[in-house]
Amino acid sequence: MTAVLTQPRPIRLKGRSYLALTLTPELPFEDWLVRLDDLAGRSAGFFLRRPVVLDVEGLEIDRAQLRDLVGKLGTRNVRIMGIEGARPSMLGADLPPAMSGGKATGDIEEPAAAAPVNESPAPTPVESAAEMPVAPLPTAGAPISLVVTQPVRSGQSIFTEGDITILGSVASGAEVIAGGSIHIYGTLRGRAMAGTLGNATARIFCRKLEAEMVAIDGFYKTAEDLEPGLRGKPAQFWLEGETFTAGSMA
């Protein structure tokens, strides 16, 4: 029998980015751990089931100290999935792997006293990054942008992680949600939510503004709050710091 050359199905390797909590320990570790215990005490289970990355950039510590710290965090149910900013000599098979190329996504809100986790799907004007399941910008390659050639009809909802371009109109009762910016070449009559994955630089553009609601990165304006002068005209929205700004597109 001769061996038959078969083409085995190749294993597909895909990149994916996630939002992880990053802890930045400070020296001396004993004091820092006390503060961490205080934080965890205010909200039981804050670190439970959360991916946590340890950022040790610039810390003058050795391998033994690092292993000690990871062990102490482990006893507090804080599981470290990776270590950022460590020298290669500090890491080994007994420590979590090195991580690099992370992108900051803003502070995750510290839990208030026994605050329940807010999982309301409606956009809230506070930083809700803590519950975002997906990172805003994958480190390898930008998210794919979407082009919609049909009008978005009432009752339809379109979501994409990247930018979205709509050639037609967005009807009353329809919604468009994007991790990036939203471009609408028709009339915006429904809702548009841009930068929903924590991108404060996202913008919304439309050729004719009749929107029910517009939102960027959790900050929003409803039809009543919109400048009356912009109604029926080409308009754009962006964030200036924490100020939701609207302007014409002259």
């Binding site: 009809r153 009432s154 009752g155 339809q156 009807a171 009353s172």
Partner: peptide, 16 residues
């Protein structure tokens, strides 16, 4: 009138 137009828009979405 507006309510009929919006309902029609919804139906067109379903037709598609």
């Amino acid at each position: 009138e507006v309510s009929s137009v919006r309902d029609s828009d919804r139906i067109i979405g379903l037709l598609d």
